[in-house]
Design a protein around this nucleic acid. Structure first.
Lengths: 139, 139
DNA sequence: CCAAAAATCACCCGAACGGATGACGACGGC
DNA sequence: GCCGTCGTCATCCGTTCGGGTGATTTTTGG
């Protein structure tokens, strides 16, 4: 709300500045580039400022404390087998290695991990590991 | 060196653009503010970019609360930039996302991560994260 | 100032991964 | 018996990763 108003006000001020510059331009024909460069500098500076302003604040989200793994697992609908795959993924194993360890095909591991990522709402295995750690699923 | 030249060239081009705009302004009196606003937007965008680009890399990976990591890092010959990539990998980011966050190309991120894996003696990013945690490099 | 280290970027290639889909057998409840 | 869940496996397709090589450009330290 306030931000929008401020933005609008700033925009208006800038437009006014522009017109003013143009008036000057009418009077003196040559220092036009100078004013142009100045304007460029100004807007660049403004850009730097707002850019920094916009991307800086990053408050960390509070994480709920210890919830027994069992609860979380069932809450997410993660099956025992999927949890098993999750643990092995967290050990840094490839799908192939997991398949060999569990005596199943790599395709099966892929299916499990896909459903796992789906249930955990992640898209990459590293994210799955990180989230599982946050959830207390793995130490 | 080259960067300065490029900057100069870009500046010249922009000045030329400005003059061109001004010519248009001579012909049509009304859409002047429009062009001005456009220019403002452009320069603001440029400002955002360069601002982020030049101020980010410095405080970017000010993550580590752990000081004992310094020892391990130097012991392994891991550079600050590589450590930065390591942290972002541990957050589950893809190489592309890391590149966008750090304003470098994906190729660069790949180079860093490759050397990182080499120094950490791992072959996959999940292993790198796990090992980094074991070494106390990341919380 | 110059050499070394660090950072940047590009290209290629093969492997690994993720998503979507379909299928089949086993088990357990209702 | 029937339905739902689980585990298993496959195939296709596109993306991401990891490895290798080579090059240029800061940055830094002596």
């Amino acid at each position: 709300m306030k931000r929008v108003l401020l933005y609008g006000a700033a925009g208006g001020a800038l437009i006014a500045l522009l017109k003013l510059i143009e008036y000057k331009h009418f009077v003196h024909a040559y220092p036009a580039e100078l004013y142009g460069g100045l304007l460029a500098l100004i807007f660049t500076a403004v850009g730097v400022y707002v850019g920094l302003r916009w991307t800086r604040p990053k408050p960390a989200a509070a994480v709920p404390k210890h919830v027994p793994a069992e609860e979380t697992l069932k809450g997410l609908g993660i099956t025992p087998r999927e949890y098993e795959i999750l643990c092995l993924i967290a050990q840094g194993m490839s799908n192939r290695e997991i398949g060999e360890k569990l005596f199943v095909s790599e395709n099966t591991v892929k299916t499990h991990s896909s459903r796992l990522f789906d249930k955990m709402d992640v898209g990459r295995r590293v994210q799955a590991v990180q989230k599982a750690r946050q959830l207390g699923l793995i130490p």
